[in-house]
Every structure is written in C-alpha cells, then in structure tokens.
C-alpha cells in the first residue's frame, strides 16, 4: 500500500478524498516539519522506488528546497512551507484566482497545480515582483499605488500576477482586452472598475520603463 501510493501512478477512479485518504493510510509518521500535510516516512529516507520528497523549487529567483507530498498543491506549499503568504487561497478549487502565480511567465491557479509539477520551472509570486535589491515596485504594482486600486485587497496578489503575466503577451492592451486578460480573477468588493484603471496605469508604466 505504501509503495503503491508513493509511486507516480494515480488510480484511475481517484477522487480527491480517496487520494488524500490513501496517502494518509500509508501510515507516514509525522515529522517536525509536517505542518499542513503528513510528514516524511520513518527514518527520513524515502522508501525504495518512491517519489522524491525533497524537491527544489525556483521561487522568485531563488532555489528553495522543500519537503512535499505528491498531492501537495503549489499554493499550500508556498504558503505553509516557504513562508510566502502573499498568494491567497480563496476557494481552493480554481474558481476565484486569488492564488494566481506565474509559472514560466504564464498565470496559473496555484491551488490546482501540484507542487511536484512545478519542479524545474520558474515560479514568481507577488513577493517576487519588487526589485529585491532596492524594493522598487514593479510597473503594475506602482500602477495600483498611483490609482489607489483595490479595497480589502485579498484578491490583489492574484490580479497583479495575472495582469503581469498577461502584459508579457500583450503590452499595449485596450481596457477591454486587459479585462479579458484578468477575467480569471474575482473581486468580491466589486472594485473591478478601479482595479482595471490601476492595471491599465501599470501597463502604461511598463511601456514607459
């Protein structure tokens, strides 16, 4: 059972619940770094033929080593194992966009992206946009400051990442095009109009840079 669940095969009729239950039933012992999900196996060494537990993720330009289970999502890993809580969990089911990050410059819902799949890719979160040396805000971030966009701002990291990714493909969008570009992000405060204004301003900053 343990070997089976630690292999890369996923049962054909896997439901999310059975997936989690199966891994849990593998009887892993909780380690001190268990945190959100069950820790590593006994003795700290992966079982023979098992999936590598300790992986390297490139996040915001840094290589980070992190212990993850096969079913850990990127969102949970960022938030609970890498100390990067800027990425938010709004729905945990790929509907709201609050968890949006860039993976190889493309916006993704990190709540529905397995951490393992992100190995070898370039991950950028909201914390990685400002210049690490000077703290200078990115173009889109500055646009938000200039236009006082967002209210409670829980949706903001997702919107900013989505816009940042979108603008890489279309640096001079119309307001309507940009709205479509971030249509995968929801704002419950309903600040959409001001958000768009702020993101358009950010696009302008980007072009003028």
């Amino acid at each position: 059972m343990e070997d089976k669940m630690m292999s890369e095969e996923v049962p054909q009729s896997a439901s999310r619940r059975n997936f989690i239950k199966g891994v849990v039933a593998a009887g892993a012992v909780a380690s001190s770094s268990a945190y959100l999900f069950r820790g590593s196996t006994v003795h700290g060494q992966p079982a023979a033929g098992a999936v590598e537990r300790l992986i390297t993720l490139n996040v915001n330009g840094q290589d980070r080593r992190v212990d993850v289970m096969p079913q850990d999502t990127l969102a949970m890993t960022l938030r609970y194992k890498l100390g990067l809580t800027g990425t938010k969990i709004g729905c945990d089911r790929a509907e709201c966009g609050a968890c949006t990050v860039l993976i190889d410059d493309v916006p993704h819902y990190s709540c529905s992206y397995l951490a393992h799949r992100a190995r070898g890719k370039k991950i950028v979160t909201i914390e990685g946009l400002a210049d690490p040396a000077t703290g200078k805000l990115s173009a889109v971030q500055q646009g938000v400051i200039d236009e006082q966009g967002f209210q409670c701002a829980f949706c903001m990291p997702g919107f900013v990442m989505a816009a940042t990714g979108y603008l890489k493909t279309n640096p001079n969008p119309s307001r309507q095009e940009l709205a479509h570009g971030v249509s995968g992000n929801l704002c419950r405060c309903q600040d959409y109009d001001k958000i768009l204004t702020a993101l358009m301003r950010g696009a302008e900053h980007m072009r003028n840079a």
Binding site: G86, I145, Q148, F150, P157
Partner: peptide, 19 residues
C-alpha cells in the same frame, strides 16, 4: 497621498488571518 495599507497589500506583506 498613499494610504498606509496599500504598499503592504501590493507587495504581499499584508497578513490576513490565515497568513
């Protein structure tokens, strides 16, 4: 003026309950 919360929010430093 820039409200005091805005930079924290836009850089992901603002902490909500689950953070």
């Amino acid at each position: 003026y820039t409200t005091p919360d805005l930079v924290a929010k836009v850089t992901g430093k603002a902490k909500y309950a689950e953070d």
